[in-house]
Design a protein around this nucleic acid. Structure first.
Length: 568
RNA sequence: GCCCCGGUAGCUCAGCCUGGAUAGAGCACUGGCCUUCUAAGUCAGGGGUCGCAGGUUCAAAUCCUGUCCGGGGCGCCA
């Protein structure tokens, strides 16, 4: 619709010699604050200079001319400096609904071409999976879905730290269980490793113990058989845990799992090559890149004892990812703590492979903190994913039972779990990535307000209406006079494609989250004022509108990785 | 000390990229609406020097500069 308006305006402007292309005009078109003012509006401020007239006058002139010409609008009128367009609302609603019902899950899809690799989750083995990781995995999966929906081919990858100092600490802990005061459990071993890590990490602050940990690290890189056996066994515990709980909960299917252990050797050889080229230099025994003059500090490529670092391995990873999939872009979804690190990494890659460096992009997001402050698995100040989810589920079960005391235990379990996951994902995605999230269990599980559960509820109500009708063919309907909430809901539905495109361009799931919420709110308003089943004359049209709402909200939530529920 | 990010209603957040029509939601608070499709809803109301100070502009929450407050980062963790 915006494009249509842009074309008309373009016609009139080019007659007056104004150089403004259709695209720019389309971008200027906005939706008025309320529908009584119009359905679309074109602001005339930008034209004032070229036409040497007040924007109010220009709007007046344009509105008169457009009204006189042949067009598809109900009414075109000026209001102050704006030209306001009123669409033929019946036709508009009918077109929108018919398109949605025809395209269903594909409604709103884009036509982008290309291949993007997303890299997220990054849950390290031998360490706890905590609530902070859920922001990462929610963002990663959502961005992947949004990009896919825009038409791109997406390769999902997970890069896991299965070797390095943190693993050495956990292994030290496992070898010194008595000292850290832990016993090996019979189940939940993956989760238990997180505890071992936290305890060992705290003790490694002691100089002597830290030396022992370093020795383990060196031995592990050197291939010590006994250590390797213990490492392999426990690494599997972590992997099993992720595969059984985390990935299904977040509905992620990775195309490729990269491990630090598979790129360490190549990493070292790349560093040696950079050193030989004279790009990297040795300082205090370590190999470094000196970016102090660019205000980017020192980037350490290799420790003085010759063992590799995260940086060493990342260089080789970039090359491997590129070789295997040759994507147009590699999107690393990593917390903002590593902003400087990624600038250094990409800068260093430029010396090694400029083209590859240009593909690299760091999608940075702020941390999740607890009301008590920052989480750090090194400090043991974390809330584990499992424990938190259990807490959320129990909060939600309480809410459900208050409203439905007869619900079966089994139904309660599955429903509460789905709602809890919805609540977490919505909380993680609805806030701007640049803002720190203070994780509050009570707030995000509320059934009212701007929460996942509220949105689910509006979907469930829509489904509940449709359950009461036998006839499921919604294509046949007549649009009569439209009520305010009917046209507003239709307009909102028609915006979905624009929102999805914008979200893909900006790698921004929050835009989809906000849209979902606004759409749910509009449905609630419609639901309140427009009875669907009681009004025989309106029934067919309203059923079609309700079904369209379900389709679009489902698409929208799907982009957030959230599953819809038919009942709540 | 240097670099990055945030500072909008009592609280949690949109809006800032791309400056324009009365600065929007939610929670909390006050008052309506259930013999009608799930009241987990909806309607109405009170509540804002958009951190502060300059500047640019016909027009600034939005752009620029400075400053204060909070968070993160800055050589052998990832």
């Amino acid at each position: 619709m915006k494009l249509e308006i842009a074309k008309i305006i373009f016609g009139f402007l080019s007659k007056r010699g104004v150089k403004l292309d259709k695209d720019s005009i389309e971008k200027l078109i906005e939706i008025p604050p309320n529908s009584e003012m119009g359905d679309f509006a074109f602001p005339c401020f930008v034209l004032a200079k070229d036409l040497r007239k007040a924007p109010q006058q220009i709007a007046e002139d344009l509105a008169v001319e457009i009204s006189k010409s042949k067009n598809n609008f109900e009414k075109v009128q000026a209001q102050g400096p704006y030209v306001n367009f009123f669409v033929k609302r019946g036709n508009f609603a009918e077109d929108t609904i018919k398109t949605i019902l025809k395209e269903k899950g594909k409604y709103g899809m884009g036509t982008q071409k290309g291949k993007v690799m997303t890299e997220f989750c990054h849950a390290n083995t031998h360490k706890a999976f905590h609530i902070g990781h859920t922001r990462n995995i929610s963002l990663g999966e959502s961005v992947s879905r949004i990009l896919e929906f825009s038409g791109l081919k997406v390769i999902r990858t997970n890069y896991q730290g299965d070797i390095g100092m943190h693993v050495a600490k956990t292994l030290w802990g496992l070898l010194n269980l008595k000292k850290i005061g832990l016993k090996e459990p019979t189940k939940d071993k993956g989760k238990w490793l997180g505890l071992v890590y936290a305890k060992a990490s705290a003790m490694a602050k002691d100089e002597k113990i830290n030396a022992e940990v370093n020795e383990i690290n060196q031995k592990l890189y050197a291939g010590d058989k006994k250590l390797i056996a213990l490492w392999k066994k426990t690494r599997q515990w972590s992997i099993d845990y992720f595969e059984k709980t985390v990935y299904p909960d977040f509905q992620v299917k990775f195309n490729r799992f990269y491990f630090e252990s598979e790129v360490e050797k190549k990493g070292i050889s790349i560093v040696k090559e950079l050193e030989k080229k004279g790009v990297a230099k040795v300082d205090r025994g370590a190999v470094i890149m000196d970016y102090q003059e660019q205000g980017m500090g020192i980037y350490i490529l290799l420790k003085s004892d010759g063992t590799p670092l995260y940086s060493t391995k990342d260089l080789a990873l970039a090359e491997l990812q590129n070789k295997e999939y040759n994507p147009d872009k590699i999107l690393h979804i990593v917390a903002s703590e590593q902003n400087l690190y990624f600038r250094q990494l990409i800068k260093t890659l430029e010396f090694y492979d400029k083209k590859l460096a240009d593909k690299e992009k760091h999608m940075s997001y702020e941390l999740v903190i607890l009301p008590s402050g920052k989480m750090a698995s090194r400090e043991g100040n974390v809330i584990l994913y499992d424990d938190t989810l259990a807490k959320l589920i129990s909060l939600i079960e309480k809410e459900i039972k208050q409203r439905d005391s007869k619900i079966s235990k089994k139904e309660l379990d599955t429903r509460a779990r789905k709602i809890a996951l919805c609540a977490v994902k919505y909380a993680m995605l609805s806030q701007d990535i640049k803002r720190t999230i203070v994780f509050n269990e009570e707030e995000i599980t509320r059934f009212d307000g701007n929460t996942g559960p509220y949105i689910q509820y509006s979907y469930a109500r829509a489904s509940s209406i449709l359950k009461k009708v036998k006839q499921k063919n919604f294509q046949k309907f007549k649009v009569g006079e439209l009520e305010k909430h009917e046209i507003e809901l239709s307009k909102k539905l028609s915006e979905f494609g624009d929102v999805a495109r914008d979200a893909a361009e900006k790698y921004n799931p929050a835009l989809i989250a906000h849209y979902s919420y606004e759409l749910a709110q509009m449905f609630s308003e419609f639901y309140h004022t427009c009875p669907v089943l009681q009004d025989e004359k309106k029934k067919d049209f309203r059923l079609a509108l309700v079904e369209s709402f379900r389709v679009v909200l489902k698409n929208s939530l799907n982009l957030l990785g959230i599953e819809t529920l038919e009942e709540m």
